[in-house]
Structure formats: C-alpha cells, structure tokens
Nucleic acid binder design. Sequence first.
DNA 1: GCGATTATGTTGTATTTGCAACATAATTAA
DNA 2: TTAATTATGTTGCAAATACAACATAATCGC
Lengths: 150, 150
Amino acid sequence: MTEILRPIGSIYRALDAIANREFQQVKLAKGQYLYLARIAEHPGIIQDHLATMVKVDRTTVARSVKKLEQQGLVEKRPDETNRKIRRLYVTEAGADVYPLVQRENAYSNGVALKGLTVEEATTLATLLEQVAGNVAADWERVKQGQTRHY
Amino acid sequence: MTEILRPIGSIYRALDAIANREFQQVKLAKGQYLYLARIAEHPGIIQDHLATMVKVDRTTVARSVKKLEQQGLVEKRPDETNRKIRRLYVTEAGADVYPLVQRENAYSNGVALKGLTVEEATTLATLLEQVAGNVAADWERVKQGQTRHY
DNA sequence: GCGATTATGTTGTATTTGCAACATAATTAA
DNA sequence: TTAATTATGTTGCAAATACAACATAATCGC
C-alpha cells in the first residue's frame, strides 16, 4: 500500500518547529499559535470543540488557552443560557497577533507548495481534506477509550 | 493560495496520538516508535542523522534513544574509525517490537487512505514527497539559527 | 420529573520536549 | 601542521503534553 504517513510527519514536525520558534518573538509558547488562530476564526468557540477541531488533548488545550487568557490575548465569556461553557474570543491584543500567525503560516504554505502547479496543489488539498476526514473519526473513537483490533 | 497545512496538522496529530497510545502496551513512550522504526530500517545510523531524518530536535532524539537503549531495544556501538559517533542498531528485543510498529502504521495508513483510488493515493504520495523535500531545507536552515524574513 | 449518561471544565502528576550551553572529536582552511 | 570551524554528543532547565481522576452542568431516556 502507498505510504503517506511519513512525509506527512516530516512536513508537520518541520513546519511546526519553525512556527513555534518564530512565534517566540511575540511571546507565544509552543502550540499557542494553533489555538489563537482558530479562536480568531471561530469567535465564541468553546474549549472542547477547539480540541476536537485541532486534534489535541482536551487538557492540553485547556492549559494553553488559559495561558493565552493570562497573556491577555484571549478572553473567556460566559454563555447566555448555558452556565457551564465559556466562550472564547480574541482580545484586541490577540487580534493584533493573529495576522502574524497568518503571515507565517502562509509563508510556510508557500514553501511547502514550491514547484507544484496550481492544479497539483488543488488536488493535494482535496485529497488531504479527504484523509483528514477519514482520520478524524478514528481519533475521536480512540480518545473516548476504544481500542483498535488489528 | 491553496491551504494544505491544516489538514496535514490534523492528520498528523490525530494519528500520532493514536500511535503513542497504542504503543504504551509495549512500553514505548511518546515518540519512541518513530526512532525505533528508523533505526530498524537504517542499521548503523547515528543520532544526528536520525534527528535530521525525522525532523525532531537533536536533544529530544538523544534522550529518547537513550531510553530505548536502557529499555534494551536499541544498542549503541562504537564506529571502527570514528571515535566520536555511536552507531545505532535494534537489539533482538527491538526487532520483536518493530513489526508491531509496522502493523500499527500500516493500519493507520489504511484508515487514512480509505475511499481513495489507487491512483489518487499514488498521486497524493508523490505530491507529499515533493512537499517534504521543499520543507526539509527550510527546517535545516532554521535549526541552524537562520531567521526568516517575510 | 428524575435518574443515568454525556459534555465540559479543571487539577495532579509524570513525562517528553526543546532551547542554551557546553564538551570534544573530526574536518577544513590557512 | 596548526588554527578555525563544523559535527556529534550530552546535560540543565523550564515548559508543554497527556493520562487519570475528579467536579458539575446539561441532556437523554424512561
């Protein structure tokens, strides 16, 4: 069978390391750029959904978002009707940092796609979305404690 | 520009989390499956090259491999001519664990490719290899301390 | 309506991770 | 040959990460 996991791993680890290093300049800790961007793009999202969206452990997201809050980049607001959830929004300061994240990500994306035609890039994106969909279900199952049987 | 980084991130984090969880059964700590597999496939590889290959920080690889050694899954042998490097090999115990890593990875790969035709999978793999190549150079530059200019 | 289950959030704790900084062998340059 | 640079390896340390366990609000099933 065609192997796709290894190049995906290489691409991810390389670009994630670069991103984390770059964002130290704006005092973002490892991983925080991910959450900041998603919150900026999905105002009012709650932590658990954020975790599911990015596929990171709930408790990791919880602590990282708490830190974003302490840094004044994100705020948690109570919901009108649901007393348990806290909705997430970027603050003004957070809104200032977000474009830097976008710019870095766009740059990395450009590096990644260098030498591919527009059609190739589109094909790649489409196939990756499909794969991401396939994998999401498995992740949620395992996160809920189910074990695989080979 | 077409966005490919996010699905790649989702796929990676989801499958990496699953893999790490599965491999707890064979007492592999987070990340160790990566190194064990590469050492099994490249007998005699040295730590630094392993780090470059998988795109993980040198010092992280160093500690993870040290632990593999302490667990008796990998051994470090001196080189004939070079007194500094230590060549890595899987032990018999390590050779027993390696197929389990292969099996899990193959399973995940299958989940990932579900619903894609053989041609689509091949296309995807080819494009991903190209992207991985593009990204590798950037990673090494940043790891050597060079900063990007946007 | 009420009990059971699920969803959401938090904290404790052990571990991995990665940047700095260092040590020294090997290689390159002069 | 020797000095400078690079390659390889390690350790200190601060921080992120993730599993387990818990708390409680919300929702579901009856």
